[in-house]
C-alpha cells in the first residue's frame, strides 16, 4: 500500500492547498459549521475513528518511557525515562535482531524491488492484448491471498513429498528440508516474496507507461529508433519518477520487514537467525506482555525509518529527481 499511497499524497494535499492558499481562520470554520452542520456531522465519526485508532496509538508511544503495566494503566504507570533504550542498546541480542532485519530487508530491496520494473517493461512489449491480460491475471493472483495461504502453499510445495524434492529424489539426490536450514530458508524467503508480489508490483509501472503519449513512439519510429531504443529512451524515462518514489518509500520501510511472511515461514528452530523486529515485538510484547520494552523497540524502528526516508528523499532531490515531497 505504501507505494500506491505515496503517489497520490501530493495530489491529496495539493489540490486543496494550492488553490485555496489563504489560511482559514477558526471563525471561518465556525461560520461554515453553522451554514451546513450536516456536512460536519458526517465527519464526526470519521474524526473519532482517526483520533481513537490512529492518533491515540501515536501518543501511546509514550509508554516506551514508562514502566507500563496493565493494572496501573497509562496514567498510573511509572515514568522511567530512557531506561528501556539503555537496556536495548546494551543487549547483544538486539544487535542480532537489527542485523537480521537489515539482512532480509536489504535482500528484498536488492532482489525483489527491480523485478516488477523489468516485468512491466517486458509485458509492455507483448503485442497480443489477450495474452498480456492472461499473464497479468495469473501473476497478480498470489497478491490476493494472505501469507497464511501463500505460506501454506510454499510449505507444501517444498515439503519432502512436494514437487521439488520429488524431482530431486527421482534424480538420485537427497531431499532438502528447505525451510529448516538458514542457507536454504533465506532464498526461499526472497523467492516466495518475489512470487507473491512481482505481478502486482508491476501495475504501478504499467499505469505510468500507459500514460505515455503514443506520438512519442511514432516520432521515434520515424526517426529510425529501434524497438530497444524506444524502450530505453521513451518507456524507461516515463517510469523513472515512479521508480524513484517507490524506492524512497521502500527505504522508509527498511526495518519494517513484513511480519506475516516471517511469522508464517520461519520455524522456531531457526529463530536466532530469522527473528526480526516485528516478530520479536509480537512475541515478547503482545504474547509476553513486555509492553514498554517492545514499544521502545517500535519507537526506535519508527525513528530509523523516518530518518532513512528523509535522507533518501534528500539524496533523490539532490540528484534532480522530484522525491516524495
Amino acid at each position: 500500500m505504501a507505494t500506491e499511497s505515496g503517489v497520490t499524497i501530493d495530489a491529496a494535499v495539493d489540490d486543496g492547498g494550492a488553490r485555496v492558499k489563504r489560511r482559514r481562520s477558526l471563525s471561518e470554520i465556525g461560520r461554515d459549521i453553522r451554514k451546513r452542520p450536516l456536512l460536519y456531522l458526517m465527519l464526526v465519526p470519521v474524526l473519532i475513528y482517526y483520533l481513537a485508532f490512529q492518533y491515540l496509538p501515536l501518543f501511546g508511544v509514550a509508554i516506551a518511557f514508562q514502566d507500563y503495566n496493565i493494572f496501573d494503566g497509562f496514567r498510573g504507570s511509572e515514568w522511567v525515562g530512557f531506561q528501556w533504550f539503555r537496556i536495548l542498546f546494551d543487549d547483544p541480542n538486539f544487535l542480532t535482531l537489527i542485523l537480521n532485519t537489515l539482512k532480509f530487508s536489504l535482500l528484498r530491496l536488492i532482489l525483489q524491488f527491480p523485478i516488477p520494473i523489468f516485468f512491466a517493461l517486458f509485458l509492455n512489449e507483448l503485442r497480443t492484448g489477450s495474452y498480456k491480460k492472461a499473464i497479468q491475471t495469473v501473476t497478480y493472483l498470489p497478491h490476493f491471498f494472505s501469507w497464511a495461504i501463500c505460506g501454506a502453499i510454499v510449505i507444501s510445495f517444498l515439503s519432502f513429498s512436494g514437487p521439488i524434492n520429488s524431482l530431486r529424489q527421482s534424480l538420485g539426490h537427497e531431499p532438502i528440508p528447505f525451510l529448516l536450514r538458514i542457507s536454504t530458508f533465506t532464498p526461499v524467503y526472497v523467492i516466495s516474496g518475489i512470487w507473491k508480489d512481482f505481478g502486482w508490483g508491476s501495475i504501478i509501472y504499467l499505469a505510468a507507461i500507459s500514460g505515455v503519449n503514443p506520438e512519442l513512439y511514432e516520432a521515434a519510429y520515424m526517426d529510425g529508433a529501434t524497438r530497444l531504443q524506444r524502450a530505453l529512451h521513451i518507456t524507461v524515462p516515463s517510469i523513472r519518477h515512479i521508480i524513484v518514489i517507490t524506492l524512497i518509500l521502500r527505504c522508509g520501510d527498511m526495518l519494517g520487514v513484513g511480519f506475516d511472511q516471517m511469522y508464517i515461514l520461519a520455524p522456531d528452530m531457526l529463530r536466532s537467525s530469522t527473528d526480526i523486529l516485528s516478530t520479536y515485538i509480537f512475541r515478547v510484547g503482545i504474547r509476553g506482555g513486555a509492553y514498554s520494552y517492545t514499544a521502545a523497540i517500535g519507537l526506535f524502528r519508527s525513528i530509523v525509518d523516518v530518518t532513512l526516508i528523509v535522507i533518501t528523499n534528500r539524496i533523490a532531490k539532490s540528484l534532480g529527481e522530484s522525491g516524495v515531497w
Binding site: 491515540l56 510484547g285 509492553y291
Partner: peptide, 8 residues
C-alpha cells in the same frame, strides 16, 4: 503508533 500502542 506501531503494533504495541495500537494493541493497548
Amino acid at each position: 503508533g506501531g503494533m504495541i500502542p495500537t494493541y493497548l
